[in-house]
Structure formats: C-alpha cells, structure tokens
C-alpha cells in the first residue's frame, strides 16, 4: 500500500462545494450596462443598426442634457415622482395593514383572500377609464390607479410573510404574558418584514408601470406624457430619454429597498 503511494501521487479530493451562495459583485451589473450601451453606440455609429431601430446612446445623452437645461426635466419628473410616491404609499400601507389582518384573523382571511385573488389578475390599466369617471381626470384617479395596483401584490406578500413567522416565537411571547398588540408589533411585524420588503420590490415596479399608463391617458406633464408625445412624433431620442428615466427610477427604488433590507435585516444569518 505504502509503496504504491510513493509511486503514484495521491489525488487531492475534488472540491465540489462551491456555488449556491450569492455574493455581492456590484461592478458586474454596471459592466453589463456599459457593455450593452457601448455595443449599441458602436452599432449605430457604424450603421450596422439603422437609426430607425435604435437611437444613438450619445444622442440620447445630448437630448437628456437639453431637457435638463431647459428646466423641463423637473417639470415632468416632479409630478411623476409625487404621483408615484403618494399612490404607492397609499397602496402599500393599506396592503400591509390588510395583509397583516389576513395573517392574524381567520375570518378576515376567509373573507378577503378570495377577493384579493380575484382582484390580483385584473390588469389595472384596463380600469383606468373607470377610475377617471370615479375620481376625475386629475391627480386623484392616478393616485387611485397606482394605489390599487400596488395594493394587491403587497397584500399577498404580507400575509404570506406573516404566515411564515416562527410560531414558537409567538408562543414565547404569549408565555411571557405579552399583550396581543405587543406580540403583533414586536414579534409578528419584524418577523414578517423580510417578506414584506421583498414584496415591495414587485409592488414598486408595478407602480412605475401604472404611473406611465396613467400619464399616457391624461396628463400634461409627467414622464408618461413625455414618452407618449415623443412616441407619436417618432422621436426616438426623446422616447429613450423617457425610458431611461423610468429605468433609473426603478433602479433607485430597488437600491433604496436594498438599503433598508441591509439596515433592518442585518440580524439575518
């Protein structure tokens, strides 16, 4: 046996334990963006991509700076952001409260879960004309649309998260004589927070989609109105400026939630 070992070098046990553990690599995401944009720039410069298909990224940048310098950027951005923020705050706070109620009370669950399941698949955009009649053409109908659109996914994420709170922790709270309200506030809610926050990512993406839809239908100012106008003139540069602004809003929102997750959920193993 030992002779053999001397002749053949013993093989090292093969490592097979890697992967399945996401690590943060921020620059990779950035690199993907940069490479894609550079490719489009190169393609449009050389004429490989016709300028009817895609605008030059550099032209888009110039259009953006013009928009910024003319002051119109804020005129479009501020109403959009306020619609987004107000609408989603209404929808999300209602959604979280209803989700927690569903998670805590079996009658509420029995009554509302089917209703939410029925509301969830309705394309909210289809209801916009209805909302305009109910709430008027002005801001209220836009808030209502965004609120409604963010409400259902938030409810579903929240009650799922409440269901997943460790029951032994709730038992513990009861065994120490904590009041019902304390158990909800100090055990159920923090325990469900991770699930609620990841649901928010989806809700906010939906909110941005609905924002644009609402603004396309009836708004003088707003990113949606800007995009609609550019689209009808087939002004690709401006169209893309609008689209990029939306993407950036989405990115920022997601980064914002990511920040909260890291701050609030640093207790996770």
């Amino acid at each position: 046996m030992s002779d053999k070992l001397n002749v053949e070098r013993p093989e090292v046990v093969k490592y097979r334990g890697g992967g399945f553990a996401p690590k943060p690599h921020r620059w990779v995401g950035l690199a993907v963006f940069v490479v894609l944009i550079l490719m489009v720039e190169l393609g449009t410069q050389t004429g490989f991509i016709s300028n009817l298909t895609l605008p030059k990224p550099s032209d888009v940048l110039i259009t953006f700076s013009e928009l910024y310098e003319s002051g119109l950027l804020w005129q479009h951005l501020i109403p959009s952001l306020s619609r987004l923020v107000i609408g989603s705050i209404i929808g999300i706070s209602l959604g979280v409260s209803v989700g927690i109620m569903i998670g805590l009370f079996s009658y509420v669950r029995a009554g509302l879960v089917p209703l939410v399941a029925a509301l969830f698949p309705i394309p909210k955009i289809a209801l916009l004309p209805l909302f305009v009649i109910w709430f008027g053409i002005d801001e209220t109908s836009k808030y209502a649309l965004i609120a409604f659109g963010t409400f259902t996914p938030t409810v579903v994420a929240t009650y799922g998260a409440v269901d997943n709170v460790d029951r032994t922790l709730i038992r513990m709270g009861q065994s120490f004589g904590l009041s019902w309200f304390s158990i909800v506030r100090k055990i159920v809610f923090p325990g469900a927070l991770a699930g609620i926050l990841s649901g928010l990512r989806i809700s906010i993406a939906i909110a941005i989609i609905l924002l644009v839809a609402a603004e396309m239908l009836g708004a003088e100012y707003g990113i949606g109105a800007y995009i609609l106008e550019a689209g009808s003139l087939y002004d690709l540069e401006r169209l893309f400026v609008g689209v990029v602004i939306l993407s950036v809003i989405g990115l920022l929102m997601s980064a914002f939630i990511g920040y909260f997750e890291r701050k609030l959920l640093n207790w996770r193993v």
Binding site: R171, F176, W267
Partner: peptide, 11 residues
C-alpha cells in the same frame, strides 16, 4: 417557559 429551541428574537 424555557424552550428547547431557545425562542430568542433574532432581530
């Protein structure tokens, strides 16, 4: 109570 799985709030 003292529970088998400790039941500490991780946060």
């Amino acid at each position: 109570f003292v529970f088998q799985d400790f039941a500490l709030l991780p946060w």
